[in-house]
Amino acid sequence: MSTDLKPRKAAPAKAGGRPARSPRLRSSIGLKLVMAVSGLLMVGFIIAHMAGNLHVFEGRESMNDYAHGLRTFGEPLIPHESLLWVMRLGLIAAVGAHIWSSVVLTRRALAARPVRYASKKPAKGESRHAAATMRWGAAVIVLFVTWHLLDLTFRTVNPVKEVPDAYGAVVAAFAPERWPVTVFYLLALVALGFHLRHGIWSAVQTIAGPDTRWRARWQAAALGVSVIVVAGFAVVPLAVSFGLVN
């Protein structure tokens, strides 16, 4: 047995004796902070996106006006599509940071248990579904977002090519005969719901480190936000599929 208690690898020191910044960012907690902050930014986007979708229930004009408004926001003070591009670049940065940190942490986690247990036990921690759903759920969400961009942003696979007609594109995307798209959308929402249920309180735990009572409150809040987000997104394709919006 090794009895050498000297730290194996100290953080490399910069001039002036301070440890360098990047090893801390790449430490297991630093990476978690990157994941938490980028995740919360995306949660903010998702809530806004969900709320914006509900314009579909106000009819074609309201939905298309909303989509147009996102493009012309702040004109003529700021250039066309400024808001949209800030959102797009911010989202791309958040998605990149989120995936980068998760890949690094997942690889470390797999390396930290080179030999697996022969017998399995049911999870009994506070977030029982997390180990089983976060990583696979993330893969489902990535596949879904890819399809979603091709369908409703670039319209590559959508029959409605006219960009201003957001309403028409939504109605075409979830038309009854395209029911597999709707089913995939709903499945992806379930994955997103599980992801948010753990991800939101986990992010708060990483950033703010609440005490036991506040942790329970944040867990409840995370569940509430997940249910609202999933329900808010799900009503649109369901309403289109069942002919309530056409």
């Binding site: 730290p7 194996r8 690898k9 100290a10 953080a11 440890p19 090893p23 430490s27 297991s28 907690i29 990476l31 978690k32 942490l105 470390r108 986690a109 390396a111 930290a112 248990r113 999870a123 009994k124 921690g125 506070e126 977030s127 029982r128 997390a130 180990a131 976060m134 753990h198 309180w201 986990s202 735990q205 990483t206 480190g209 609440p210 005490d211 036991t212 942790r215």
Partner: peptide
């Protein structure tokens, strides 16, 4: 934290399995 990572332990994903297994019931707080 630097030594923890250098020793090859993984990161925390807040599943709470540690706390549930802890014989002294140390919490996630």
């Amino acid at each position: 934290v630097a030594e923890h990572d250098a020793s090859g332990f993984g990161g925390c994903t807040n599943t709470g399995e540690c706390s549930a297994a802890c014989p002294k019931e140390i919490g996630l707080d």
